[in-house]
Design a protein around this nucleic acid. Structure first.
Lengths: 344, 344
DNA sequence: GCACTCCGTGGAACCGGTTACACCATTAAC
DNA sequence: GTTAATGGTGTAACCGGTTCCACGGAGTGC
């Protein structure tokens, strides 16, 4: 006997399975004496209900499917942490699945969730709207994060475009004129939004003739390559704004290796505020995204939808400019920003 | 009609549910013509099998429960990444649950997995052996990671004690004599093993009279506090070995702030090799633990057990000494270590 | 004393799959 | 020509829960 079933419990307590089920689920219509007899039997047999069977008959799984792209370190863990906390608060568990950009694989990953979860949180920054729409299972609540909008589903997005614009404005305000951008992969809509925000801001500031976009892929090595290039031709730029911190750090290290002063000769800024941004020397100016909050809100919104509670159809998270030493501290006071005490 | 069931498919293809099931599962004994008729109907109806129902009748869930303590950033994501990759390779999904040190909560978290997963990977560095044993569900394959040994279950451990000893030996070889240790929380068996390794090594080297253990909790702030203390009384130590990188970084920054030269006056070493260890200045000497590998091996071992394949009862992962600038580079060549090219 | 309500309990259907077993139509073997 | 083996298909039981409905006994009002 591997596991006790509810019938075992019912037999041990000399009641029907119906009464056993009622007692175990706290239904009121069970005589106290009967109830305790059943609960005692359950404890005695170490009875644990079979989740699969229960979800079959109640059509509730008490689990949420989370489908993510290939994320890196801190971003992944913070996102999942936020989701776990929110789900746990309502007694839900998380079924994790990662999804590569391939739409066929996406469909498989989503299909495997059927009958196992009560809803899905999907993060799909590199999927086209039609591909995503086609692979969504029907009849299951869905919340989309950083994904193309699909009207019927609630969604959350990071305001990448405006944040990128704000970063460029800050760089211009501190006197930078020849600002370069290291872009992320263009299949990623966040990377596109950040680049667009950069382009809009340089145009607005009238420094567009000096602006330059380098291709990147969000990896540190891409930033290193750009850093080496700029070190060879320092006249090209007096500031670099990378689409994420990894690339900014690669660039910063390459410039440091080459003896180019940061921030004196070239300022460097990133996006995300990963932990390493604080530790690098000079510490990296960046746009902070509260990733755990993003995950938590997405989960919370999904659980609302499942419970039939009303909630916002769309939420936007606004990153926060964090000024550190890599862009210089001369013009330190800046509107709507947060400046940290700088070590050393 | 929210979702098509196998009976809908059978009706649409004018066959019995038995034939439909056989065709959909690739059983051989179905006439090709019948099979294609069924598959066509399934595609037409967008049929996706109900995982709960299937796991009820097959007693297979094709999912693995993962129960983790509260882990920090990089450690968590790398571990999960390794597990996801291994599970995915065999077509399994991950059900995630985090477990606090509280044994009662642990039992609840584990119980909720029943009937939902085919096995469990449990990481429990801060649970006592009897509490863990009591809350393990019966009849479910389990692999334990960094947890107290329970004879019947396969386990994986990081060789924390020997690694800590090796780190101290390295510090002694490079001329350090007054070595302090910042310990992790003593409810955590990894923290205990690292401290024990430290104590054994200083005793062996005959420098024990100068050795000193500071209490810590794995957080950066604990390292900062020790760093400030040492900065106030620099004669106390010429080297600090922290039980993890977070505390080592806190200590290093505090020393730097106070103007104490690292590594000239005091060497600093950590444990784990989180990404920030490479970025901090001076870069941190540490013990590298391949966390993704740890997760992957644990998952792989569990899947073997489920499949009835033989496998090792116990595996030990050996961290690797990574020498960087925070301990000085004078005595650079060291046995069985890896030295990185240092930037700058 | 009778009819009616209320309430605790049990029997059985049902959720959506899988599969043992029965069945029938071929074909092969004698 | 009869029997046996073979192989495709259908019927129904089963996995382990939940819940509708029926039933019987106690309590209440007349």
């Amino acid at each position: 006997m591997a596991h006790a079933t509810i019938r075992d419990v019912a037999r041990a307590a000399s009641v029907s399975v119906a009464s056993a089920s009622r007692a175990l689920n706290g239904h009121s219509s069970v005589l106290p004496a009967t109830r305790t007899r059943i609960l005692d039997a359950a404890r005695e047999l170490a009875y644990v209900p079979h989740a699969g069977a229960r979800s079959l008959s109640t059509a509730r799984a008490h689990a949420i499917g989370v489908v993510l792209p290939d994320l890196h370190g801190e971003y992944f863990s913070e996102l999942v942490r936020g989701m776990v906390a929110a789900a746990r608060a309502r007694g839900f568990q998380l079924l994790l699945s990662n999804m590569h950009a391939d739409p066929a694989q996406a469909a498989v990953a989503l299909g495997a969730m059927r009958g196992r979860v009560d809803g899905l949180v999907i993060m799909a920054p590199d999927l086209a709207a039609d591909a995503l729409a086609a692979s969504l299972p029907r009849g299951l609540p869905v919340v989309l994060v950083n994904a193309p909008a699909i009207a019927v589903h609630p969604s959350l997005d990071v305001e990448n475009r405006a944040a990128a614009t704000a970063m460029v404005r800050y760089l211009v305000e501190t006197g930078r004129r020849r600002i370069a951008h290291i872009a992320g992969p263009m299949v990623n809509r966040e990377a596109v939004a950040r680049r667009d925000g950069f382009l809009a801001a340089v145009a607005e500031a009238g420094v567009s003739e000096a602006a330059r976009v380098f291709d990147g892929d969000f990896d540190e090595a891409a930033g290193t390559a750009v850093g080496r290039h700029l070190a060879a031709e320092p006249a090209l730029a007096d500031a670099v704004f990378a689409a994420n911190d990894n690339m900014a750090i690669g660039c910063l290290l390459a410039l440091r290796d080459a003896g180019i002063g940061v921030p004196d000769r070239i300022a460097v800024a990133g996006f995300d505020d990963i932990p390493a941004a604080r530790y690098i020397t000079p510490a990296l100016t960046t746009m902070r995204v509260d990733i755990a909050d993003l995950g938590g809100r997405a989960m919370e919104r999904l659980l609302q939808a499942i419970a039939g509670e009303p909630g916002p159809q769309h939420q936007t998270l606004h990153p926060e400019l964090v000024i550190r030493a890599s862009t210089g501290l001369a013009n330190a006071r800046h509107t709507r920003t947060k400046q940290e005490r700088v070590r050393q």
